[in-house]
Simulated scan of single mutants.
Amino acid sequence: MLAMSDINCIKHLRNKKGRSITKIKETLGINWRTAKKDADEDQLPESKIKQSNEMMYSKKWGDIISDWLFEDSKLKKRLRRTKKQMFNELRGLVLKVTIVHSVNLYLIGRIVIMKKKLIKGTIV
């Protein structure tokens, strides 16, 4: 397989300079079939980009797990957290966060209502 620079060179010679496959073969010293395949192929191979799972990083779970892995790397293997333990601890943290968030929203709502009643003078 040729490098991308060679494929681009073959395409340039064929499309821009108008050289024949035989001339390209002789100039670059490659097989005729390789020159034909690379010169007449419409698309260049695309590089594959690995996409990370965004949820782990947008919710800050990735940072928590990274910290746990770093802490566990200092422990003996049998004392480290397993995947299941990490999952259960993370689920507990998320549940606590959602409960605390819900309570905070409720309290904020109650405080706003109390302030409105105080301003109107309905609370003595």
Score class of each variant (00 low, 15 high):
Ala3Gly: 05
Met4Gly: 10
Ser5Ala: 07
Ser5Tyr: 02
Ile7Trp: 14
Asn8His: 04
Asn8Val: 00
Lys11Val: 14
Leu13Asn: 04
Arg14Asp: 12
Arg14Gly: 10
Lys16Tyr: 10
Lys16Gln: 01
Lys17Cys: 08
Ile21Phe: 08
Ile21Tyr: 06
Ile24Glu: 12
Glu26Met: 01
Leu28Tyr: 03
Gly29Ile: 09
Asn31Val: 02
Trp32Asp: 06
Trp32Thr: 11
Ala35Arg: 06
Ala35Phe: 08
Ala35Val: 05
Ala35Asp: 03
Ala35Met: 01
Lys36Ala: 15
Lys37Trp: 13
Asp42Leu: 07
Gln43Leu: 07
Gln43Ser: 11
Leu44Cys: 01
Leu44Pro: 05
Lys48Cys: 01
Lys48Tyr: 14
Gln51Ala: 08
Gln51Gly: 02
Ser52Tyr: 13
Ser52Gln: 05
Asn53Ala: 14
Met56Asp: 08
Met56Val: 04
Tyr57Ser: 04
Tyr57His: 00
Ser58Asn: 08
Ser58Trp: 02
Ser58Arg: 15
Lys59Ser: 08
Lys59Pro: 00
Trp61Gly: 07
Gly62Pro: 04
Gly62Gln: 01
Ile65Glu: 11
Ile65Cys: 03
Leu69His: 02
Glu71Tyr: 04
Glu71Leu: 07
Asp72Trp: 04
Asp72Pro: 10
Asp72Tyr: 11
Asp72Ala: 00
Ser73Arg: 02
Ser73Met: 00
Ser73Leu: 00
Lys74Asp: 07
Lys74His: 08
Leu75Val: 03
Lys76Ser: 14
Lys76Gln: 12
Arg78Ile: 15
Leu79Val: 00
Leu79Cys: 07
Arg81Pro: 01
Thr82Ala: 10
Thr82Glu: 00
Lys83Ser: 12
Lys83Asp: 14
Lys84Tyr: 14
Gln85Asp: 02
Gln85Ser: 13
Gln85Glu: 15
Met86Arg: 02
Phe87Tyr: 06
Phe87Trp: 15
Glu89Ser: 09
Leu90Gly: 13
Arg91Ser: 12
Gly92Cys: 06
Leu93Asn: 06
Leu93Thr: 04
Leu93Cys: 09
Val94Gln: 12
Val94Pro: 15
Val94Thr: 08
Val94Phe: 02
Leu95His: 08
Leu95Val: 14
Lys96Arg: 15
Val97Lys: 13
Val97Gly: 13
Ile99Val: 08
Val100Gly: 03
Val100Ile: 14
Val100Leu: 06
Val100Met: 06
His101Phe: 07
His101Leu: 14
Ser102Tyr: 09
Ser102Met: 00
Val103Thr: 09
Asn104Gly: 10
Asn104Lys: 11
Asn104Ala: 05
Ile108Ser: 13
Ile108Ala: 15
Ile108Cys: 04
Gly109Pro: 04
Gly109Asn: 02
Arg110Leu: 11
Arg110Phe: 10
Ile111Cys: 14
Ile111Gln: 02
Val112Gly: 11
Ile113His: 15
Met114Ile: 13
Met114Ser: 12
Lys116Asp: 02
Leu118Arg: 12
Ile119Asn: 15
Ile119Pro: 06
Ile119Gly: 03
Lys120Asn: 05
Lys120Val: 05
Lys120Trp: 03
Gly121Asn: 05
Thr122Ala: 11
Ile123Cys: 07
Ile123Val: 09
Val124Gly: 12
Val124Ala: 11
Val124Glu: 10
